[in-house]
């Protein structure tokens, strides 16, 4: 019997399960991106202020997320911190927590970088016009900084979406794990299933990440001048 393996995608409720897994992936990454962006903007603004202890603290926070792998964060938070504090949260909540904090750290750095890259004369011209510090940020610096933030932020968003494949290790069943379940079940009947399942997962990730790249390009072009 010729069995190409592609049928495995449509067996039982496999197709819906894969899409359901994708939904988990999307949920974790998008909620985290939104929370991370809000916190990150606040953090970026704080980091442009010249307060030494605050600077050190925020820098430490950023480096902690940059240096320690996200996998380690997930593991430590899920299996050590939360049980230690006697909180029982689901793997999904842990994932959103860790990804949000990671997002906040990285977005904070992107915001800081964008603000500090503004030519000094922008700030000085604004001050010469008699704008207060708040007005300076609101009307001159932030609108221009946002334009510079877009590529970095979109890059981070796509990275986060792809990194959700790690959450399986704390028991969250997302799209890649469901794919592996289907492959393992199919091993007996269709040994080539892995090609089709991973191929399909590739298309799913592409379908989520590609629009983000397009939006990024469009936004950049629109704000060019």
């Amino acid at each position: 019997m010729q069995n190409s393996g592609i049928e495995v995608l449509f067996e039982g409720s496999n197709f819906e399960r894969l899409l359901g897994g994708l939904l988990v992936t999307i949920e974790i990454s998008f909620v985290s991106i939104v929370i991370g962006t809000v916190l990150g903007i606040v953090m970026g603004l704080l980091r442009t202020l010249n307060v030494k202890p605050l600077q050190a603290l925020l820098r430490l926070y950023l480096e902690a997320f940059r240096i320690i792998p996200i996998l380690v964060w997930l593991y430590v938070v899920h299996f050590s911190f939360t049980p230690l504090l006697n909180i029982d949260i689901s793997g999904e909540t842990t994932s959103i927590l860790v990804f949000s904090l990671w997002g906040a750290a990285e977005i904070g750095d992107i915001v800081r970088g964008a603000l500090q890259s503004m030519p000094k004369h922008q700030e000085e011209s604004g001050a010469a016009l008699g704008l207060s510090r708040g007005q300076l940020y609101r009307y001159i610096l932030i609108p221009q900084a946002i334009r510079r933030m877009v590529p970095g932020a979109i890059n981070l968003a796509t990275r986060m979406i792809k990194t959700t494949s790690l959450v399986v290790l704390i028991g969250v069943i997302e799209v890649v794990k469901i794919g592996q379940q289907i492959i393992e079940l199919g091993v007996i009947k269709a040994p080539t299933a892995s090609f089709w399942v991973y191929g399909f997962i590739f298309i799913l990730y592409f379908a989520v990440c590609f629009p983000l790249s397009r939006i990024s390009r469009r936004v950049e072009r629109r704000w060019q001048n």
Binding site: E11, G12, S13, N14, R17, I173, K177, I178, Q180, Q181, I182, I183, E184, L185, V187, I188
Partner: peptide, 14 residues
């Protein structure tokens, strides 16, 4: 387990 047939796995209906 979710990926170790025949001991613990998830069938096509989840």
């Amino acid at each position: 387990f979710a990926d170790k047939p025949p001991f613990g796995y998830v069938d096509a209906d989840g």
